[in-house]
Design a binder for these strands. Structure first.
Length: 568
RNA sequence: GCGCCUGUAGCUCAGCUGGAUAGAGCAACGGACUUCUAAUCCGUAGGUCAGAGGUUCGAGUCCUCUCAGGCGUGCCA
């Protein structure tokens, strides 16, 4: 609807320019906002303020002139009014509002999608947790946000590929493999301590047991410092399979799992470093090879890419990885990182600039920490100490729907408390049930209607005349916004506006339902009204179901009422 | 020290990218059930938008500074 009003305004302004009433040249951008107060109509624009200095007239003079020129917008508006000090308020004709019902009926599960993204190719990299242990709750937040952002961008017409980058090379992996070796040795009765900086988690012991089952007892006799690839490959594969499984149970999948070692196998790291070297961007310092990052960003220090022992740093493979992403020709690269990685952003961007890439194509979204709380008790998390609550434990305890919803409710760049007790509650305090219950209620109503011989009306122009309650018009207006909300989420790379939209939409329905349960019931003796209202219910259910699907939250058709608390 | 994020009702958070009188949910209080599911709804109360300057027709939103909390500032990832 915003777009239609803007189009109309643009043509009016151009007409006035041609007539010499407005100065020629570029027009200011037209903002159309939703009116907050009913007396301001449905929409408002501030264009008169913006034109005033250009036309050297007061906003009031311009506003009045514009109102006259806009007229009724070829029937789109039922009223257009000027309001001091310089707003123009629009009221949309009822028939136009109701036309959205036809669109919903025609498009069904596709309603809400748009081509706002114009088919731009986007690589969305998220989670990318190191395969050194199970996913914890913080990973879960990034996973859900990334997954849903991908859904939203796809719905808004972007072409999205999802990727998980696996750091399967490097010192942490070496420590991990050594941890497996030590645990394996302990299983075989060797009296050795697991060194302090190694991975202490219980899961390593379990993996050691599986390793023993797979490879027997004969693998002890190796140099622990030069671990055979057997240990490394085994534990990485084992943990990765676990991660994949956790994410799968959480409804999250990837188009590609990009393994760091591929960059070495394909010599991509080598080639990137060669390129930097020939361009004079590397220099030797005490035997280490450093990248002149500071040349491209004065706030950044030069960084080591090859250690003095000849082993490349993670920075080296990260440069190669992003260089490889650019080579794949995406329009936009989005990385979702944990907030603790933010110090890394500057150097990666600077490094890519140095390679001649347009670093502005790389967007790095930081997901802030999750503070896990159980009632009043804090639960701290640290992978290496081995004490943390895994994502799997949380999902098993509170369910995937509630977990997802809680992560999606908040903007990603704010830290959040995740209260396990609250997420588990099947009560008003828990917003996920509120939305799901709305969907279930709609389904029940449609079923009841069918049992009484009522079918939803097909879309027709009579609906506006039958759905005359204020709440019914309110619902229709809100349905109109759905695809805008999705496009807005996609453009802003945010998920929470959709969550808020859904809960506000369903709130209006709950209010409508309860208010009229004794007077204007949906299913009544009036067959025409009943059919029209059922049509509205189908539309509402469609939008709700589409919205929940984008969030990856289930839309149940029935929810069991809570057990009555029996009194003895 | 420097950099990033955050600061809005008692609590948890929105605020449509600068618009008109700052909104929800929970908690509190008062109401509505022979129910198209009361897991619902209606009403009341609750605010120095952390603070101070600035930009302009107009600031919770943009700029500067201060305060508070979190995170980062490695040849760790």
């Amino acid at each position: 609807m915003h777009a239609r009003i803007k189009e109309h305004l643009t043509s009016v302004l151009m007409r006035l320019q041609d007539a010499g009433e407005l100065p020629s040249g570029d027009l200011p951008t037209i903002d159309v906002i939703l009116a907050k107060q009913p007396e301001h109509g449905d929409f408002a624009t501030n264009i008169a303020f913006k034109l005033a200095p250009l036309a050297r007239r007061s906003p009031a003079q311009i506003g009045e002139r514009l109102v006259a020129a806009i007229g009724d917008g070829d029937g789109l508006f039922s009223s257009v009014e000027f309001a001091r000090p310089g707003f123009i308020n629009f009221r949309i004709a009822t028939a136009h509002w109701f036309s959205v019902l036809g669109e919903i009926a025609a498009r069904g599960a596709q309603f809400g999608t748009s081509d706002a993204g114009a088919g731009q190719r986007v690589l969305l990299e998220f989670v990318s947790a190191n395969p050194t242990g199970p996913l914890h709750v913080g990973h879960g937040r990034g996973a859900v946000v990334g997954d849903v952002l991908g859904n939203l961008m796809q719905a808004a017409g972007y072409h999205v590929e999802r990727e998980y980058y696996v750091n399967d090379v490097g010192n942490q992996i070496r420590l991990l493999a050594r941890s497996l070796y030590f645990r394996y040795a302990q299983l075989l009765g060797r009296e050795i301590e697991l060194p302090e900086n190694h991975y202490q988690g219980e899961y390593v012991i379990e993996i050691a047991q599986r390793f023993r089952e797979a490879h027997g007892d004969g693998q002890l006799d190796v140099d622990a410092d030069a671990l055979p690839p057997l240990f490394r490959a085994f534990i990485v594969d084992d943990i990765l399979a676990d991660i994949r499984d956790d994410l799968g149970r959480f409804g999250i999948g990837f188009d590609r799992w990009y393994q760091e070692h591929e960059l070495y196998d394909s010599k991509w790291v080598e080639r990137v470093l060669d390129k930097l070297r020939t361009e004079g961007l590397l220099y030797d310092e005490d035997g280490k090879m450093k990248y002149r990052v500071s040349q491209f960003d004065p706030n950044e220090a030069d960084r080591v890419v090859i250690r003095d022992n000849g082993v490349p740093t993670y920075f080296a493979s990260d440069i190669a990885y992003h260089d490889e992403k650019f080579a794949r020709g995406f329009d936009t690269l989005i990385n979702i990182w944990g907030a603790d990685h933010h110090g890394y952003i500057g150097r990666v961007r600077a490094a890519l600039t140095g390679l001649g890439h347009d670093a502005s194509k790389l967007e790095i979204l930081l997901v802030q920490f999750v503070n896990l709380v159980r009632g009043a008790e804090q639960v701290s998390m640290s992978t290496r100490s081995g004490q943390f609550v895994t994502l799997r434990e949380v999902v098993d305890e509170v369910g995937a729907d509630a977990t997802r919803y809680f992560f999606l409710m908040r903007k990603m760049d704010a830290q959040m408390d995740f209260d396990l007790e609250l997420a588990k509650k099947r009560s008003l305090e828990n917003p996920v049930f509120y939305a799901q219950y709305g969907h279930a209620r709609l389904c029940t109503m449609l079923k009841r209607g069918a049992e009484g011989g009522h079918q939803p009306a097909a879309f027709n122009s009579e609906l506006a005349g039958l759905l005359t309650l204020p709440e019914e018009l309110d619902i229709v207006k809100r349905l109109w916004r759905f695809s805008d909300v999705i496009a807005q989420c996609a453009a802003a790379r945010e998920t929470h506006p959709l969550v808020f939209y859904i809960s506000e939409l369903i709130k209006v329905f709950h209010g409508y339902f309860t208010r009229y349960k004794h007077t204007e019931k949906v299913i009544s003796e009036d067959a025409a009204k009943t059919a029209a209202r059922l049509h509205l219910c189908v539309a509402l259910r469609t939008v709700l179901a589409n919205g929940l699907a984008l969030l990856g939250v289930s839309a149940p058709e029935w929810m069991e009422p809570p057990a009555e608390t029996e009194e003895e």
